[in-house]
Amino acid sequence: MPDEAPLPVPATHDIGGAPRFRCTPVEPDDEAPPDAFGKRVDALRQLLAQRGLMTVDELRRGVEAIPEAEYHALGYYERWLRSITALMLEKGVVLPEELHP
């Protein structure tokens, strides 16, 4: 790419090469397998996809819609839950008052 024009700031999730993480170590011992919460969210994602209620592409779109500060503050499966619940609200599968009484 020519150096003249500054490029747009990448989307929050689009972090390949992001300078802000270049000095952050990757910790090979950081395993953290999913806890009960993570496994439940993961199972819901699969079950809702099997029922034709969402695609992995919609899941990604929902994760990408999370504002940057929250994106990095939320855990991985918390982001998924945010995306999945937003999608199911969008499609009328569940109602706002059921999720946010």
């Binding site: 790419m1 490029l7 747009p8 990448p10 689009d14 390949g16 090469g17 990604r60 990408e64 819609a65």
Partner: peptide, 19 residues
């Protein structure tokens, strides 16, 4: 850079655009 024009979902990483 469609992300500068509104909501979208793209699978082409930014670091490859124009490359």
């Amino acid at each position: 850079f469609p992300e500068t024009r509104g909501p979208c979902h793209i699978r082409t990483p930014h670091y490859l655009r124009g490359r």
